[in-house]
Structure formats: C-alpha cells, structure tokens
Simulated scan of single mutants.
Amino acid sequence: MMSESDELVIVTGMSGAGKTVAMQSFEDLGYFCVDNMPPELLPKFWELIKETGKIHKVALVIDLRARNFYDEINEVLSELKHNLRIDIRILFLDASNEELVARYKETRRSHPLSRDSRPLDGIRRERELLSGIKTQAQLVVDTSKLSPRQLREEIFHSFQTDEGQYPFHIDVMSFGFKYGLPIDADIVMDVRFLPNPYYIPELRNKTGLDQEVYNYVMDSDKTTEFVNHFEALLQTVIPGYIKEGKTNVVIAIGCTGGQHRSVALAQRTGEFLKKDYHVSITHRDVNRRKETVNRS
C-alpha cells in the first residue's frame, strides 16, 4: 500500500479505456485531481501545491489533448523525481482494438486521431504513439472486459492508502417528515410508529440527544423489535452497496418533527455501524422547533 508521502499519479492510456472512471475513483480516494494539464506546467504546479502544505496526493490525466506530453515525458518525469523528490506512479489504461471500436460506435463519438477516417485508424495510431509511456507504467490495466465498477475496485485495491480501508462512508441522519424528505437519502426509515416523547410534558422540550428521551424511546418493546430487524437489514444491504461500488450511503431516519424518536434512533444506528464503517451522524431538524419559537 502507498505511504503518506507526496505522491503523483499520472493517468494515461488509450482514449476510451476508462480515464474518466479512473479520475472519479481517485477523487473518492482523496486525491486532488487535474485533467489535462500542459506538461511544461507540472513542476511549477507541484511547487504551488507544496506551498499550500495541505495536498499530498495528486492524480493527473494526460491524454492526446496534450500531445506534446509524449515528447517531453522523460524530461518532465526526471525533473519531478530528482529535483522535487516526488513519488510518481503511472497508471496506463488499455483495451483491445475491438472493444475500443465498439465503445466509440456505442457513444457515437469520433476518435481524436480519426476525425475524418475510421475509428480503427485512429486507435492504431494512438497505440503507436503511446507505446513508449506504456513501457514506463508501474500499472497497466486492460479494461476490455471490466465494468466501470470493476475498474474502480482495481484502482481502490492498488492505490488505497491504509491497509484494508475501503473509501466508503455512511451518513446517518435524523429528520422530521413535517419539514420534507431528505433529497439525498438512499435509505429512508419511518419511526413514527414508536412511542412519542412529545406527549410526555417533562420530555417535550428535550431531544433524542438527552438521555431521558433516548431511554424513553429505547425502553419500548416496539423499539427493541424494530432495532433488531433494522440492524439485521443493514448488515445485509450495506455490503451489497460496497460490492456495487458505492462510496457513500445516506440513511435517513424520520419522525414527525425530527426532535425525539428519529434523533434517538439515528444515534443508536450510527453507533452500531461505527463498529465496521466510517460513519457520521447528523440531525437535520433537531433545532428546528427552537428556531421557529425564536422567530415568533
């Protein structure tokens, strides 16, 4: 696995072989991504990056839009490695001629080197131009038979920084149905069937973040049964999301006003998931009633 030292990944290869998917994958891995920077600007660009002191991993796409790159590659890489002491890796994405032709026909796009001729002519010419940089690549991935998800998995496996860490994050949020559904939720759970602390005078002005309210919600037999089923469901579906290549899942738990039941359940669910995943817990409407009262 890669260390936390300064790192530059150059993503290149055949047009249509998956560079867009690759860059999206590097973004999910926390890389600062740049598409098609002129090669002569690379040393100065890296100096500016280092001045910030905040960016240590950069992924840079180089393709036929910067054709002079292939003439300058050796000189540029030599300067970056020896003068600026950067850990450089080249990822070369390839695919068979047949598969690339099929992809261009499917998207109805022209190959950048065959605007006025057959796609295959441009593909052959590009393959010849890229032969030199391909031999320098630390990793060559043939995407002929890979789905976008499989390519992402290959990149995650090869470039993730921490052993066993997958770039996957879960957001657990509470909300109130009276204020509308969260538009970015992947899973929405309605807990309005549970006992409502709002009708207990001493609990009404508290929230699910207060221990008394949390205990009231959790001590219900209905809540115990629900939690057991819901946690078992999450243990089934979340690995499926990961297998399909998702990097983020939003679990929204709602009650009427987003003050009591949903807050308590979001806390419980988030703590349960933290045992296996990177989780953040937010409460969208927990202060909404207080804000309404203050305005009035």
Rank of each mutant, 00 (worst) to 15 (best):
H111D: 02
N97W: 00
S131C: 09
G132Y: 13
R103E: 02
P119E: 04
F168A: 07
D162L: 13
D162F: 10
D94L: 00
P167S: 14
Q150D: 14
E153F: 12
H169D: 05
A95S: 04
Q150Y: 01
T161V: 05
L80R: 04
E128K: 15
L91T: 12
Q165V: 14
L84G: 00
K81I: 11
T107C: 02
D94R: 03
S158M: 03
D142P: 14
S144L: 02
G122V: 01
Y104E: 03
H82D: 10
H169W: 10
D121M: 01
F156D: 12
E98S: 03
L93K: 12
L129R: 03
D87E: 12
Y166P: 08
S114H: 01
E163V: 07
F168G: 11
E128M: 08
K105L: 14
R124D: 09
D116T: 06
K145G: 08
F92C: 11
G122K: 10
R118A: 13
V101I: 14
K105C: 04
R109V: 07
H111R: 09
D171Y: 08
Q138L: 00
R85Y: 09
S96H: 01
R108A: 01
I155E: 08
I123L: 11
V101H: 14
S131N: 11
R103M: 09
R108F: 00
P167T: 12
R108M: 00
L113Q: 07
Q160K: 11
A95T: 02
F92S: 07
R118I: 11
I155S: 04
A102D: 13
